[in-house]
Design a binder for these strands. Structure first.
Length: 477
RNA sequence: GACCCCUUCGUCUAUCGGUUAGGACUCAAGAUUUUCAUUCUUGCAAGAGGGGUUCGACUCCCCUAGGGGUCGCCA
């Protein structure tokens, strides 16, 4: 078997979205699993839909995710250029070959004419395909109209009676009859090729072995197979991935909700979690494992374990998975990732030891990376106390608790967790108080909130001097 | 509408003819003896329906239903 070469071929019309990421990821995993090559090819053949900066965004998103292509824009490679807009001569050369072979013909019909024709056919409950009126044109007339500069496209002349067989790696054998197939436009009137021609030519020239793409391409695959035949080329293996769905089971589109990869990253999802989660949307390992690193996915991934049915994107599970990564990734790594957020919030995290203690405590209750700063402010600055909590602080019982613990802490310099836990426990007995009556005043005094992590953690983070300061302050309320 | 694809707990899925149909998320309850989390335990919850084939079907075949995709000078 030839060395695996696969490509991710997006059109630069916006940001990388979840669906695109899943396709790209499977391309990537498949190539890595078999020691092959992943190529990024930009399908910028629609001049009307180009979005400036889209390619940069795309590249940047993949970079952020740690997915590196082997060939593509910026990276180069032996099969470039990797922008289809830079390969126009190539497409025209092959289009010419199709004309010579009699399987492509010019069409001068206007958009309006086509619309009318389709409407008419639909009214008659017929399949709305081009009626080939321009195929009747004489050679002389065609030459004359082209010479006069009349706008025209090039169409592929599909066979009349034929059943195409697609051997899909995931779905098996699929049959599609040509009655359902239109004479596809392959060169548009602006001289650009359509996807069908460009993708086939490039996939062949770039020696792509497996075309891994979304299921939405299944119905037009016969056109592609036919093109391979016309050129006398061997077609690649077809791999049509199940779609990613919205909760209502419609195709996950750019329209509905926000599905750009960047926005998930900005919302505080870790790339590790996003990649892991997206990989599991349509693929599952042989065992019950759910958590995989990118490297582990590379070694485990095979097409045989890709499912056929579409998968709903379930945010709740992504949240859970993100929490798993937040809790289990190395502390230093996590601390580095969130550092900019702390700096942005104006928190002084120059005390590295304290910062790491904070991260360790905060990570246990975080779902998103963006949860860190809000949960950490209490360790770095004075916060407002709710009126209700303030009132509780003013009660005699509360003052008793604070006054009791103060001198004990004062006598300590750098207590460890065990010492602090003992001290805190002793207080419940010494004061004959328990539960909220005892703990809540301390919670509020030290963390400005009745709900907080365990007290010994807070004291450890704050240090004795700051702890005493907060207790004194609380007693003045 | 036509064609194509798909169909196991609400969701992601395991099962490649013989299982008490397993795991994960969500949800509920309990424990971890302050709270919020974390963690752990337990629980709720599924083979779309109908025919075949077979000693035996979630698994193979057919029909029906439902969902999705495609039907552009968009990809």
């Amino acid at each position: 078997m030839n060395k695996v070469r696969v490509r991710f071929a997006p059109s630069p019309t916006g940001f990388l979205h979840i669906g695109g990421l899943r396709t790209a990821l499977y391309d990537y995993l498949y190539a890595r699993h078999y020691g092959g090559t992943v190529i990024l090819r930009i399908e910028d053949t629609d001049q009307n839909r180009l979005v400036t900066g889209a390619v940069e965004n795309l590249l940047n998103s993949f970079h952020k995710l740690g997915m590196e292509f082997d060939e593509g824009p910026l990276l180069g490679g032996d099969y470039g250029p990797y922008f289809q807009s830079q390969r126009l001569e190539t497409y025209h050369k092959y289009a010419q070959e199709l004309i010579e072979k009699g399987v492509a013909y010019p069409c001068f019909c206007s958009a309006e004419t086509l619309d009318e024709m389709r409407k008419d056919l639909q009214d008659k409950k017929l399949f709305p395909k081009y009626d080939r009126r321009c195929l009747q044109l004489s050679k002389a007339e065609i030459d004359k109209r082209i010479a006069s500069g009349e706008k025209h496209v090039l169409r592929l002349k599909m066979p009349d009676e034929r059943t195409f067989i697609i051997n899909d790696e995931i779905r098996g054998q699929i049959e599609i009859d040509t009655h359902q197939l239109d004479d596809q436009v392959i060169i548009k009137s602006d001289g650009f090729p359509t996807y069908h021609l460009a993708a086939v030519v490039d996939d062949h020239l770039m020696e792509i072995t497996h075309v891994i793409r979304g299921e939405e391409w299944l119905s037009s695959t016969p056109k592609h197979i036919f093109l391979y035949e016309c050129f006398g080329w061997t077609a690649p293996k077809w791999v049509h991935l199940p779609l990613i769905l919205n909760p209502d089971r419609s195709k996950l589109s750019k329209r509905m909700n926000d599905v750009s990869v960047d926005s998930y990253l900005e919302k505080g999802y870790l790339k590790e979690a996003l990649l892991n989660f997206v990989a599991l949307l349509g693929w599952h390992g042989a065992d019950d494992r759910e958590l995989y690193t990118l490297e582990e996915l590379c070694s485990e991934f095979t097409l045989e374990r890709v499912s056929k049915a579409g998968a709903v994107f379930d945010l709740a599970k992504l949240d859970w998975m993100n929490g798993q990564y937040i809790r289990n990734l190395p502390l230093d790594y996590l601390a580095d990732i969130v550092k900019p957020q702390y700096l942005n919030a104006g928190l002084d995290i120059s005390d590295e030891v304290k910062y790491h203690k904070v991260i360790e405590v905060v990570r246990s209750r975080a779902t998103l990376l963006t949860d860190f700063v809000p949960c950490s402010e209490r360790y770095y600055k004075e916060l407002d106390i709710e009126i209700k909590d303030m009132e509780l602080l003013r009660t005699e019982t509360s003052k008793g608790v604070l006054s009791w613990i103060l001198p004990h802490l004062q006598a300590m310099s750098n207590p460890d967790a065990e010492t602090l836990k003992n001290l805190i426990n002793n207080g419940t007995e010494a004061l004959a108080l328990k539960g909220k009556l005892y703990y809540t005043p301390l919670n509020i005094a030290l963390s400005y909130s009745s709900s907080c992590p365990e007290l010994h953690n807070i004291i450890e983070i704050l240090g004795i001097p700051e702890t005493l300061k907060r207790l004194h302050k609380a007693l003045t309320f």
